Computed example of a mutant assay.
Amino acid sequence: MQNTAGFQATGFSADSVFLGRAFEKYGVRADFEQRYEYKNAVNEYTQSDYTGPHREAMTAWMTSIYDSALANAAQDRKTTPAALKTVIEAGPYSAEQALANKLIDKIGQVEEAEAEVKRRAGKGAEIVEFDQYTSDKGERTGSGKNAIAIVGGEG
């Protein structure tokens, strides 16, 4: 983590686009049959917001994902999920605080992280720009060998 960066785990979220009100306004009739209240796949076409059961199901699903992520991170950090959750949810932290709380392993610069990744990857390893990685016209269309690709994305 860079020394000027802040550490804040914001958790998980999910959203849905509900078309019920738009369909109603334009006279579109969504012709679906819903068997049970927790079978909510059709709700985005028939409702204008989450129903109680739909919200309950989404909350349970997102909580499950969060708990699983916490358990995996806690194992990596050699702590318990409850202890990690307490520390994470008390943030945000400066880089120094994140290091002191064992949320990160090192404070450094991007160039240092790139050099370490290449060192760990072994002789001949290189970092390829995303547009070059995805381009069919570029010289990099795959090595034909066993390889590890780390593809980052933002947005």
Rank of each mutant, 00 (worst) to 15 (best):
V128Y: 08
Y45A: 08
G142W: 04
A60C: 07
A125P: 03
G152Y: 05
L99A: 05
Y36A: 15
Y66L: 01
N72H: 07
R120Q: 07
T134W: 08
R35A: 13
D15R: 09
H54S: 06
M58R: 04
F12Y: 11
F23R: 03
K85L: 02
R119N: 00
F130Q: 14
L19H: 09
T10W: 00
I150A: 06
E24L: 10
E114S: 08
N40V: 15
D131Y: 07
Q109N: 13
K145P: 04
K118T: 03
G124S: 03
E37Q: 12
S13N: 13
A22H: 11
K78G: 06
T141L: 07
G27Q: 03
R119G: 02
L70P: 08
Q34P: 01
A41N: 12
K145L: 01
D131V: 07
A83G: 09
Y93H: 00
F130A: 15
E44H: 12
L103F: 00
T46I: 14
Q47P: 04
E96M: 04
R21C: 01
I88R: 09
G144K: 01
A82S: 13
N3R: 14
E112D: 13
I88G: 03
K123L: 08
Y93S: 09
V87A: 11
D76A: 15
E114G: 04
M1L: 11
V128Q: 05
A9G: 01
G6A: 11
E114P: 06
V151C: 04
F130G: 12
G144M: 05
R77C: 04
G152P: 01
K137A: 14
